[in-house]
Design a protein around this nucleic acid. Structure first.
Lengths: 226, 226
DNA sequence: TCCTTTTCTCGTCACACTGACGATAATCCA
DNA sequence: TGGATTATCGTCAGTGTGACGAGAAAAGGA
């Protein structure tokens, strides 16, 4: 039996919230093709490596951290002929949601790595589309899952959680209604008993993520026809 | 630059509703490996072929029909080393939802093709897991999208639409509440003006799918902790 | 024809959830 | 000490939903 030969890569859409804004991890390519252009971090899947393991390895190489917290899931595969001038390359994209981390480190084949606000970048390959798909997946998952906590450190305030929603969705949310929603949705968050100190305003109680896999009822965006 | 070499296949989770039961299209393998075992239909991606095009081609070869109606979307990729004894094979799984069709035709490399009720099959490769993922995707999508109409012919009654939900979710739904929900959710279905004839009971109005991409508000299952 | 059965369609009611917003509590800072 | 700031709790009207009653419109049998 004969069949076409492919190369397989993983590419990562790594999202975090910095200063109330949704950011994506990009690398400046240090190799051809698209040398010097910004792209999603990624690389070839090794010969005896699981797809998810490859994604985790790349994530560790690019961020230097895969510690507790955070979230990694498969986003989808992209394999148009001609998407990579080197030949027939199928990429399996993964979506990672991380709490705000120190500055990323450049990988071996990247000249530079940096957090960038989401928006119009002219990324290499078909990475603009992959990024758009990842953002839409994140926006959607915040509605039905407790994944917003993946953007937060292990202990967080309800206000910090609300700011995650506001950053990812790009819309303001009433703090009082969100507080009620977060505290009454079963399994979403659990109180730790501790509170913040030294911050302006009334101290806020600290929570950790709950054990629910789905939010019931969900937290729905106002208007999204997409 | 050197990197590992892969083969890429597409596999299809083709679902339909027959006699009030959710069915999946399976083929009996006519080639090694796993000769004689049931498996999801699929095949290798051609040298100059888009992933989605490959999925559509395989769907046409297996069902003999890709006419109007129905739905096809990418489900996910599976690439564990060792999932295929022939070597390193990554498969891109697609989910297809179709109205009840005539008996499928066996493809070139399949001994037989048949609709089977979903349940415990000992499928070839990792197809049991892919099938489970596809079913869960379908169940979830029925909540937030008008995709239940993909299981129906171009014109259908509200009762037929409700039976799709009941078959996919495996739970009974109150006909009166579902009727209210289906008729008041904007963009879900549109009346055609026609009605059924010759069936027992009061004639039912016929509808066609609306133009909404998302159901707002969604139609939520009762209890699903998954 | 008349009655029963079947299924569709419309209504009602209580309850839960949500958005809008007021009010109070608890801290920091000048 | 007083003002600014933020967190937390309450209230209330509007909306959506589950449970259920009841009428409408056909087929089929006595």
């Amino acid at each position: 039996m004969s069949y076409p030969v492919f190369a397989v890569t993983v590419d990562l859409v790594v999202l975090t919230v910095r200063d109330g804004e949704l950011n994506v991890l990009l690398v400046q390519r240090g190799l051809k093709p698209h040398l010097g252009r910004w792209a999603l971090p990624g690389g070839f899947v090794h010969a005896d490596e699981d797809l998810t393991s490859a994604a985790r390895r790349e994530l560790g190489e690019e961020t230097g951290l895969e510690g507790p917290g955070g979230h990694l899931e498969q986003l989808g595969s992209y394999g148009d002929p001609g998407r990579d001038p080197r030949g027939r390359v199928v990429t399996v994209a993964y979506l990672a949601l991380l709490p705000d981390l120190p500055t990323p480190i450049a990988g071996t084949d990247a000249a530079e790595a940096a957090w960038k606000p989401i928006g119009a970048h002219g990324l290499a390959f078909d990475h603009d589309r992959i990024l758009a798909d990842g953002i839409e997946r994140a926006r959607s998952k915040l509605e039905y899952t407790p994944l917003a906590t993946a953007f937060c450190p292990p202990e967080f305030t309800i206000a910090a959680l609300r700011q995650v929603y506001e950053a990812v969705w790009g819309e303001k949310i009433d703090p009082r209604n969100f507080h009620r929603k977060a505290t009454t949705t079963p399994g979403f968050i659990e109180p730790t008993g501790r509170s913040t100190e030294g911050e302006p305003g009334r101290p806020a109680r600290l929570y950790r993520r709950g054990d629910a896999a789905l939010l019931n009822p969900p937290i729905l965006r106002r208007n999204h026809d997409g």
